[in-house]
């Protein structure tokens, strides 16, 4: 490497003179070769944009415009469907549907009472066709808010389990919604439960710490 460095044209420093007396023929030759292999630094011609390119660009811009106007759902954040068509009539005010709401809240209950409200024989009583579901909504609200424990009888079948208090988890609207859903599903056909009724039950018994027993419920 030391030999290379000596004849390396990179020793062209600031004081480099092209025809230095001290240059050997070899180093000069080498430098020439190095210089000779370089062509000029690139530059640019000024040919105009070809006409067919203008046509292509115009066509693409037109297509882009059509695409964005027809497939952007007016830039709404909540539309994912490429075939979305905005309905001609305004949707109007949203109507609250306690049954639809209750179906979602029922996810809290589904583990024990099961998807079709059939319950688990011997462990969790059914809701579908149950004689309890038609009872006074006040009783039902009490059970959901404070829970239920001890022996009970549903459709003549005895159960002895415990249902957790859901008052801390569900608010009044949710309790009303899930009760309404249960009372109108799987063949049950009873009236919906009003949120105000649940609120009054919670006001009266919300502070109760232990679950209800069947005796207590029916004693009142």
């Amino acid at each position: 490497m030391s030999e290379d460095n000596k004849k390396d044209p990179n020793s062209l420093g600031e004081n480099f003179k092209f025809e230095q007396a001290s240059s050997t023929d070899d180093s000069l030759q080498e430098l020439h070769d190095q210089l000779q292999r370089e062509k000029e630094e690139p530059s640019e011609g000024f040919a105009p944009l070809p006409l067919f390119m203008v046509t292509i660009i115009a066509a693409l811009c037109f297509w882009a415009g059509v695409e964005i106007t027809t497939k952007s759902a007016k830039f709404r954040w909540d539309v994912y469907d490429p075939n979305y068509v905005e309905s001609a009539e305004p949707a109007g005010p949203v109507v609250y549907d306690p049954i639809a709401h209750g179906r979602r809240v029922y996810n809290t209950c589904v583990a024990c009472h099961q998807a079709e409200g059939q319950g688990v024989p011997g462990a969790f009583p059914p809701l579908a066709g149950s004689d309890w579901v038609g009872m006074d909504p006040v009783v039902l609200s009490k059970i959901v808010i404070n829970g239920l424990a001890g022996p009970i009888e549903v459709n003549g079948v005895p159960y002895n389990g415990i249902m957790a208090a859901l008052g801390p988890t569900l608010d009044d609207e949710e309790v009303a919604a899930v009760l309404s859903y249960i009372r109108q599903s799987w063949g049950n056909d009873y009236g919906i439960v009003e949120e105000s009724l649940v609120a009054s039950v919670r006001a009266d018994f919300g502070g109760r710490a232990e679950p209800w027993t069947a005796e207590e419920l029916f004693a009142q």
Binding site: K71, A73, P82
Partner: peptide
Amino acid sequence: GGPIPIWLQTAGSVASVMMTIPVIVTGI
């Protein structure tokens, strides 16, 4: 096809197709 606003997907498609302009121009 993902759950992102459709206008964003369309903008992505349109921009990708518009990329043919720099590509053809550079190619020429």
